[in-house]
């Protein structure tokens, strides 16, 4: 079973829910797909060890063979190549590694080399944890997310911590899971971004439920919205200063405040009932 924990708005408590859910489910695996800012490892003991490097193909131009015909530049949909007179410019950070320039080059002046974009690391603690880390200055984390998702435990339970937003990294994480848990907070920002995420999850076609975090700081418009839309409300996590303090120190809620274990088990039971 694969469960993705997601939210449009950042900082609503995705990592909190993912980590504590994993700690509440025996035999689960946690995979942090927020490769631009992974945080799950801050809540587990022990160091992360590198499992592998992630690279994408990037072109290398042999300027002795290049005839400066400009076909590669015309073809590249990402504007990563520019040919002006007898000068070829390559903008690595725009390249998606599609390989089109190599195919189209009539002079066979393009070969492909590996371009490092990040790493995958793991921690064999109480629960196996995998995460990816996008190199600084690299724009595209999706290839790392694809590799991470391949590490899920097909026979067991895997929890994915999704990146924020509704664009490609979040979609890649939520695609092909059995259930999405959308974490929000009861504020106008939280509700607005929840609606955006609901649109995405509906489009992907995955069942989903909502967890309200910091319950009590705002109003009940999220409740009303979920009721009207027929979206199951899986749990409410109260706005508890003790939770915020534990979070700031990197201590999972269920470790610092064990009475919350029940709440996360309940989220899991309800989620399981929906699949």
């Amino acid at each position: 079973m694969k469960i993705a924990v997601a939210s449009g708005k950042g900082g609503t408590g995705k990592t909190t829910v993912a980590v504590n859910l994993a700690l509440s489910i025996k035999g689960s695996t946690l995979i942090d797909c927020d490769v631009e800012g992974p945080n799950c490892h801050l809540f587990v003991r022990g160091p992360m060890k590198k499992v592998k490097d992630v690279s994408i193909p990037a072109p290398k131009f042999d300027l002795d063979k290049c005839t400066y015909c400009g076909k590669c530049a015309d073809f590249c949909q990402y504007n990563a190549i520019s040919v002006i007179g007898r000068k070829l410019l390559f903008f690595k950070e725009l390249c998606h590694g599609c390989g089109g320039c190599r195919i189209i080059c009539p002079a066979e002046a393009v070969e492909e080399i590996e371009h490092h974009i990040g790493v995958i690391e793991m921690n064999e603690g109480e629960r196996p944890l995998f995460h990816g880390m996008l190199d600084i200055g690299e724009p595209f984390g999706v290839p790392i997310i694809r590799e991470l998702k391949g590490l899920s435990d097909d026979d067991g339970i895997t929890i994915f911590d999704s990146p924020p937003g509704t664009a490609c990294p979040a979609v890649e994480t939520m695609r092909d899971v059995d259930l999405c848990i959308l974490v929000t907070e009861p504020t106008p920002f939280g509700l607005h971004d929840l609606k955006l995420t609901v649109d995405v999850v509906r489009e992907i076609g995955v069942p989903f439920g909502v967890v309200v975090n910091r319950d009590g700081i705002g109003d009940d418009r999220v409740d009303t919205y979920c009721r009207e839309e027929g979206i199951p409300l899986l749990a409410k996590i109260p706005n508890d200063m003790e939770i915020a303090k534990a979070y700031s120190m990197g201590v999972p809620i269920v470790v610092a405040l064990p009475h919350y274990m029940e709440l996360f088990r309940e989220i899991y039971e309800k989620a399981r009932g929906m699949i």
Binding site: E36, I136, P139, G141, P163, P164, G165
Partner: peptide, 11 residues
Amino acid sequence: GPPGTGCTVIS
């Protein structure tokens, strides 16, 4: 700005 360190952030 958006959260993260990827393409929207760089942009």
